[in-house]
């Protein structure tokens, strides 16, 4: 069934034909991250697609995946363009390499999951937390609840694991 929701004042819509995204976000709404696993070659993939980018199989199943990884790259937005984010600057958009399947199928590939730096409750992180995260920071997945059947996966610093001595940050700070 189609979803029409509101997040930070921004309309988020999912069409009722969009089976892949509906299933993905339903798992997120249950705070139980799942990705499609190919039934042909067994590789996981992100974000949802209609076939396997490695073997073209159209058959997949939803598999639970641990939401843990390290920041591969990031941008820190100071000039938001979307009205919904203007009140939240500076905010971080993180590209996170999941530990699961890192370096497969080739050494430079990973399941790279996009999300904001958030507090453990899923709200966007305040500036004092934004300043502490960079490339290499270990993060764990949390969720921003949006509506029935829809939550956004987000990232928060993983306090339960040893962090690198110094995460890499943009040099002019």
């Amino acid at each position: 069934m189609a979803i029409k929701a509101d997040y930070l004042g921004m309309p988020l819509n999912l069409d009722d034909l969009d089976a892949e995204n509906l299933a993905y976000f339903q798992h997120c709404a249950e705070h139980n991250f799942h990705l499609q696993q190919c039934e042909g070659c067994n590789l996981l993939r992100y974000p949802p697609t209609t076939a396997c980018p490695w073997c073209m199989s159209q058959n997949s199943k939803w598999e639970p995946v641990e939401g843990k990884g390290a920041v591969h790259s990031y941008t820190e937005v100071h000039h938001a363009i979307q009205p919904s984010f203007k009140g939240h600057t500076p905010y971080l958009v993180l590209l996170v390499d999941l530990d699961t399947q890192k370096g497969r199928p080739t050494e430079h590939e990973a399941l790279r999951v996009v999300g904001n730096l958030a507090r453990p409750d899923g709200r966007l992180a305040p500036p004092e937390l934004v300043r502490q995260v960079g490339i290499g920071t270990r993060v764990r997945m949390v969720f921003s609840d949006v509506a029935q059947g829809l939550a956004l996966p987000q990232w928060t610093t993983d306090e339960g694991i040893a962090q690198p001595a110094k995460a890499w940050r943009y040099p002019l700070e």
Binding site: Y7, L14, F25, S84
Partner: peptide, 15 residues
């Protein structure tokens, strides 16, 4: 409005 596949990008202020 942010729809479909764009939820993996624009919903994060990444547009």
């Amino acid at each position: 409005p942010v729809s479909g596949d764009m939820l993996h990008a624009r919903a994060y202020g990444w547009q």
